[in-house]
Each structure stands twice: as structure tokens, then as C-alpha cells.
Simulated assay, not measured.
Amino acid sequence: MENATGPGESGYPVFVESIDADSRYRRVRLRGLGCEPLEPEEFEPRVRQVFPDIDLDDPAQVHWEDRPGQWPPWHPGEA
């Protein structure tokens, strides 16, 4: 879903890409900044740094491409 916000941007302030089974991260597109790989622990602090007043539960502000709120399985010690 591309629009006039710029190349690779979805129109949502936050767009969480689909889960990649080979990664512990989810790629998160932050409007105006591009895409960043984030771990679950990094997600909320980073999003709030960019959008302090965002409602993380509002699907008009945070769009999950699949499995909302879920992250790839990863265990400490795995590369």
C-alpha cells in the first residue's frame, strides 16, 4: 500500500512487517525515518521516541502486516 508519503512508506505512522522465521527481529517502518529491525523489548521505547503520543493499540496508527503483537521465536544464545 504505497501513497504520497514517500517511497516505501505505508501511510501509517508505524507499520510492522511480517514475521521472518530466520530473524529475531521484526522490521518496523517508522513514517519519515524508514525501516528498522527491532526486537520486542525495543519496539515500544523506539516507537514512543519517534511518536510520543501514539496509541499502540490503534490500528489506524500501528499496522501489523501479520500476527499483531507477536515476534519471531528466539532464545538467548542463538545467533
Results as ranks from 00 to 15, higher is better:
residue 1 M to H: 09
residue 1 M to W: 12
residue 1 M to P: 12
residue 2 E to I: 02
residue 2 E to Y: 06
residue 4 A to F: 13
residue 4 A to E: 14
residue 5 T to Q: 05
residue 5 T to D: 10
residue 6 G to H: 04
residue 7 P to I: 04
residue 8 G to D: 00
residue 9 E to F: 00
residue 9 E to Q: 00
residue 9 E to L: 05
residue 10 S to I: 04
residue 10 S to N: 08
residue 11 G to F: 06
residue 12 Y to H: 13
residue 12 Y to P: 09
residue 12 Y to E: 04
residue 12 Y to T: 08
residue 12 Y to V: 08
residue 14 V to W: 02
residue 16 V to L: 05
residue 16 V to R: 00
residue 17 E to K: 15
residue 17 E to Q: 14
residue 17 E to R: 14
residue 17 E to G: 01
residue 19 I to F: 12
residue 20 D to M: 03
residue 20 D to R: 08
residue 22 D to Y: 07
residue 22 D to N: 06
residue 22 D to W: 03
residue 23 S to D: 08
residue 23 S to H: 07
residue 24 R to E: 15
residue 26 R to H: 08
residue 26 R to N: 03
residue 26 R to D: 00
residue 26 R to A: 10
residue 26 R to E: 04
residue 27 R to T: 06
residue 27 R to Y: 11
residue 28 V to K: 00
residue 28 V to C: 03
residue 29 R to A: 09
residue 31 R to Q: 11
residue 31 R to P: 00
residue 32 G to I: 03
residue 33 L to S: 02
residue 34 G to L: 05
residue 34 G to M: 10
residue 36 E to H: 10
residue 38 L to N: 06
residue 39 E to D: 12
residue 39 E to V: 11
residue 39 E to M: 13
residue 40 P to S: 07
residue 40 P to V: 00
residue 40 P to F: 00
residue 40 P to R: 11
residue 41 E to A: 12
residue 41 E to S: 11
residue 42 E to Y: 04
residue 42 E to R: 07
residue 43 F to Q: 01
residue 43 F to R: 00
residue 43 F to W: 06
residue 43 F to M: 03
residue 43 F to Y: 08
residue 45 P to Q: 07
residue 45 P to D: 03
residue 46 R to F: 08
residue 47 V to T: 12
residue 47 V to Q: 01
residue 47 V to G: 02
residue 50 V to Y: 01
residue 50 V to L: 04
residue 50 V to A: 08
residue 51 F to W: 07
residue 51 F to Y: 11
residue 51 F to S: 02
residue 52 P to E: 10
residue 53 D to M: 09
residue 53 D to R: 12
residue 54 I to R: 02
residue 55 D to E: 10
residue 56 L to Y: 06
residue 57 D to Y: 10
residue 57 D to I: 01
residue 58 D to I: 10
residue 59 P to R: 06
residue 59 P to A: 02
residue 60 A to K: 15
residue 60 A to W: 15
residue 61 Q to L: 12
residue 61 Q to S: 14
residue 61 Q to T: 13
residue 61 Q to N: 14
residue 61 Q to K: 15
residue 61 Q to V: 13
residue 62 V to S: 01
residue 63 H to Y: 05
residue 64 W to A: 05
residue 64 W to F: 09
residue 64 W to N: 01
residue 64 W to H: 04
residue 64 W to D: 02
residue 65 E to M: 14
residue 65 E to A: 12
residue 65 E to S: 12
residue 66 D to F: 14
residue 67 R to D: 15
residue 68 P to Q: 05
residue 68 P to W: 07
residue 68 P to C: 09
residue 68 P to F: 12
residue 70 Q to W: 10
residue 71 W to Y: 13
residue 71 W to H: 12
residue 71 W to L: 13
residue 72 P to V: 07
residue 72 P to E: 09
residue 72 P to G: 12
residue 72 P to S: 08
residue 73 P to A: 15
residue 73 P to Y: 14
residue 74 W to H: 15
residue 74 W to M: 14
residue 75 H to N: 14
residue 75 H to R: 14
residue 75 H to S: 13
residue 76 P to V: 14
residue 76 P to N: 15
residue 76 P to G: 14
residue 76 P to D: 14
residue 77 G to I: 06
residue 77 G to S: 10
residue 77 G to Y: 01
residue 77 G to A: 10
residue 77 G to H: 11
residue 78 E to S: 09
residue 78 E to I: 09
residue 79 A to M: 08
residue 79 A to F: 01
